[in-house]
Simulated scan of single mutants.
Amino acid sequence: MNFQRGKKHEDLEMNLVPLIDVLLVIIIFLVVSTTFSRVSELQINLPTAEATPPEQKPLIVNVGVDASGHYVVNDKPVSDTSVAGLGIALRQAVGNGKEPTIVINADANSTHQSVVNVMEAARQENYTHINFATQVKSGS
């Protein structure tokens, strides 16, 4: 049963004017109630220092040991494979440098004695910084 046959339905609209009025009042309230604090500043004259950056990069000596016991110091083959011969090769590679880092690149199949010989030669030459180069397994 339709009792409102002749009346047209009015489209409903949302009146935004009261919403805008309420928002403006809220904004005014927030601005008025906000307290601004002053940040106190100190006038400080910081000391200055002049330091020269180190001009030298750390000296790195690469020692390669292959599976057959051959040595290479900074890409130069070493003919004398004794500890004394390795010490001479290390001394020549270091030259006038101070506190070199000896990096041992040993083949996985090289003998333990070959690596110990490099470490002993470095010890005899008083080179105490020794590192071992490794690689990450593929698939890990």
Rank of each mutant, 00 (worst) to 15 (best):
residue 46 L to P: 12
residue 128 T to M: 11
residue 108 A to E: 12
residue 12 L to D: 01
residue 9 H to C: 05
residue 52 T to P: 15
residue 93 A to F: 06
residue 15 N to F: 00
residue 37 S to H: 14
residue 35 T to W: 14
residue 105 N to W: 10
residue 61 V to I: 15
residue 54 P to K: 05
residue 54 P to D: 13
residue 102 I to P: 02
residue 113 Q to T: 14
residue 67 A to D: 08
residue 50 E to K: 14
residue 90 L to Y: 13
residue 129 H to D: 15
residue 74 N to W: 07
residue 43 Q to F: 12
residue 34 T to S: 09
residue 31 V to E: 05
residue 10 E to V: 07
residue 93 A to P: 07
residue 117 N to D: 14
residue 26 I to E: 01
residue 131 N to R: 15
residue 107 D to T: 02
residue 49 A to L: 10
residue 89 A to R: 02
residue 90 L to Q: 09
residue 24 L to W: 04
residue 13 E to I: 00
residue 121 A to Q: 01
residue 125 E to C: 04
residue 117 N to G: 02
residue 25 V to G: 00
residue 58 P to H: 10
residue 25 V to K: 00
residue 69 G to H: 09
residue 82 S to G: 06
residue 88 I to G: 06
residue 10 E to N: 10
residue 131 N to I: 04
residue 125 E to Y: 03
residue 10 E to C: 03
residue 29 F to I: 07
residue 71 Y to C: 05
residue 95 G to P: 07
residue 35 T to S: 13
residue 28 I to S: 05
residue 74 N to G: 11
residue 82 S to K: 04
residue 74 N to I: 09
residue 123 R to H: 10
residue 101 T to V: 13
residue 122 A to R: 03
residue 68 S to W: 01
residue 122 A to G: 02
residue 41 E to V: 15
residue 127 Y to V: 01
residue 79 S to C: 01
residue 18 P to S: 00
residue 46 L to C: 10
residue 115 V to T: 09
residue 23 L to E: 00
residue 132 F to Y: 12
residue 75 D to Q: 13
residue 84 A to L: 10
residue 126 N to R: 07
residue 43 Q to I: 11
residue 75 D to N: 14
residue 108 A to K: 13
residue 129 H to T: 14
residue 29 F to Q: 03
residue 37 S to G: 14
residue 113 Q to P: 00
residue 109 N to R: 08
residue 64 G to K: 09
residue 11 D to P: 09
residue 12 L to E: 05
residue 130 I to W: 05
residue 132 F to M: 12
residue 8 K to I: 06
residue 49 A to M: 08
residue 55 E to K: 11
residue 115 V to R: 12
residue 126 N to W: 04
residue 73 V to M: 07
residue 86 L to G: 06
residue 125 E to D: 07
residue 131 N to Y: 14
residue 43 Q to H: 13
residue 133 A to M: 05
residue 69 G to Q: 07
residue 105 N to F: 13
residue 9 H to Q: 11
residue 114 S to Q: 06
residue 14 M to W: 01
residue 100 P to R: 03
residue 119 M to E: 12
residue 130 I to E: 04
residue 128 T to N: 15
residue 43 Q to L: 10
residue 41 E to S: 13
residue 128 T to I: 10
residue 69 G to P: 11
residue 66 D to M: 01
residue 8 K to P: 02
residue 54 P to C: 09
residue 101 T to W: 02
residue 13 E to C: 04
residue 14 M to I: 08
residue 25 V to S: 00
residue 28 I to C: 02
residue 120 E to K: 10
residue 36 F to A: 13
residue 97 G to H: 03
residue 97 G to W: 01
residue 98 K to M: 10
residue 133 A to L: 05
residue 29 F to G: 11
residue 20 I to Y: 00
residue 41 E to G: 08
residue 49 A to E: 08
residue 34 T to H: 09
residue 87 G to E: 11
residue 77 P to G: 00
residue 131 N to V: 08
residue 109 N to D: 10
residue 70 H to R: 02
residue 88 I to C: 04
residue 123 R to D: 09
residue 27 I to Y: 06
residue 65 V to C: 08
residue 15 N to Y: 01
